[in-house]
Nucleic acid binder design. Structure first.
Lengths: 215, 215
DNA sequence: AAAGAATTTCTTGTATACAAGATTGTTGAC
DNA sequence: GTCAACAATCTTGTATACAAGAAATTCTTT
C-alpha cells in the first residue's frame, strides 16, 4: 500500500505536472518541494525518481530533474500505442469476456448515453473511462490490463481536452455501440479494428489535440 | 546518463534477480546489499525502488522489498502482451519502413540463418534479437519502440530457455522469412498476424516455457 | 570594457543519525 | 505445554550532515 509519505508526495507532484502547474523544462527543486510538503529532501527525491521512471520527468545527473511534457510527435506516438493496446484488449475480450461482463459493458455505455443526454461532459468523461476499463478488464490479462491503465492514465489530460469539441461525444457513443456488438458476437478482429479506430488520433481529432496543447 | 552509483547498483541487482540468484519471495536486505556494494543504504534504496517500479520486486511498507518472479500465469500474460506489441510494430513497420530498412532486416535474418547453420545458439539468440529490434525501429514510433524493448528485456531470461528446444530455431527462421515478405509487400495486416503468431506461446512452446520455469 | 580564471555559492548525491513500526524472543499465567 | 503479553531487537522510513560537481560571481589581466 501507499503508506509512505513519499508515495503521497509523488502522487501530488504528478497531479501538479498533469495540471500544467509546471512549465515544460522547469526544474523540480528538491529543497522547495521539501519545504512545500514540510518534509526532508529524502522522500521528495523518492517521489522525483518515480516521476522520472514514469517518463513524466527527465533526470540529468548532478543537475536535477526537469518536467518533460510530451510534444506533438510523442503525444501522437503515445495515442497510437494506446490504440494498439486497446485493440489488443478488444481482441482478447471478444474471445474471453463472459456474457454478464458484456452486459456490464453495455450498461456502462448506457450511462455514457445518459451523460450525453444531460450534456454532462464531466459525467461522460467518467463513464467513458469506466467503459474502457471494462474492456481492459475483459481482456482477462492482468498484465495487459495494467499496461493499458498506465498509458491511459498518462494520456488523461489530453483526452480531456478532446471531449470539449463539438459532436465528439455523439460520435464516440456510436462507436461504443459498434464495439459492444463486436464483443457480444465474439468477433475479435472487428472489435480490435473498431477500438483502434476509436482511439486513433487523426483528421480533425489531430488538429483538436494540437490546438489543445497550446493552452 | 547513468552516472550515479545507484543506477549501477540497480542494474547489477536487476541482473542478479534475472539470473535467478535470488529466490522468489526473498527479501532484498538493504543493509546486506549496502555492505556488498560498499555503499550506504541510500543508493541501495534508490535501486530497490527502481526494481519495484519495473515490476521485478514488490514493496510491502515497513517490511521491505521482495523479489517477485512471475509465475506461469503472469508469464503467459506477458508473452501475450509482447505478441500484441510486436504485432503493432509490424503493422506500422509494413506501412512506414523504407526499402533500405527492409533490406537491413533481411540481412539480419541472413545472419540468423548463418548462426543456425553453425548451430550457434548464442549467436542465433543475439541475431534474433537484432532482427526484432529492427522491426521495433521500423515502426517509426519511438514510444512504442521503447515499450517493446522494455517488455522484451523483461522476458529475456525466459526466451533464452525456449531456444534450447529442438527445431525451435529452424521454425523461427521460416517465420522470419514470411515476416520479411509481408513487410516488404507493405501488408500490415499480414505482418501483424505473422508476428503475433511468431511470439505467441502456445502448444508445445507452452510446455517448454513451463518446464523451463522449474530449473 | 571584455574575456578569462579563480573563488564562492548552490545543488545534487551519499553517508550517517534518528524515529517509528514490525518481528522475534522471553516471561508469566493458566 | 500452550498461549498471551511484554520487552528487546531489528528493519524500514525520514531527517540531517557531509562530499563533490555545477553554476554563478568576482577578480584579474589585457
Amino acid at each position: 500500500m501507499d503508506s509512505k509519505r513519499a508515495d503521497h508526495i509523488a502522487d501530488t507532484i504528478e497531479e501538479l505536472v498533469f495540471s500544467g502547474k509546471y512549465e515544460n523544462g522547469q526544474r523540480l527543486d528538491e529543497i522547495k518541494l521539501a519545504e512545500h510538503f514540510n518534509v526532508s529532501r529524502t522522500p521528495v527525491r523518492e517521489a522525483l525518481q518515480k516521476l522520472v521512471l514514469s517518463g513524466m520527468a527527465e533526470q540529468i545527473p548532478r543537475r536535477g530533474v526537469f518536467v518533460r511534457q510530451p510534444g506533438p510527435v510523442e503525444l501522437l506516438e503515445m495515442f497510437e500505442t494506446m490504440a494498439e493496446l486497446e485493440a489488443a484488449c478488444g481482441r482478447f475480450a471478444a474471445l474471453r469476456m463472459p456474457d454478464d461482463a458484456v452486459d456490464r459493458l453495455a450498461e456502462a455505455n448506457e450511462r455514457c448515453k445518459d451523460a450525453v443526454r444531460r450534456e454532462d461532459a464531466a459525467g461522460y468523461y467518467l463513464e467513458n473511462e469506466a467503459f474502457h476499463h471494462e474492456i481492459y478488464r475483459g481482456a482477462t490479462n492482468s498484465f495487459l490490463q495494467n499496461e493499458a491503465l498506465r498509458l491511459q492514465n498518462r494520456l488523461k489530460p489530453y483526452r480531456r481536452v478532446q471531449l470539449r469539441f463539438r459532436g465528439r461525444m455523439e460520435q464516440s457513443l456510436a462507436e461504443h455501440e459498434a464495439i459492444v456488438d463486436a464483443l457480444r458476437s465474439g468477433n475479435g478482429e472487428a472489435a480490435a479494428n473498431l477500438l483502434r479506430d476509436h482511439v486513433t488520433v487523426q483528421g480533425e481529432k489531430f488538429h483538436q489535440l494540437i490546438a489543445g496543447l497550446k493552452n
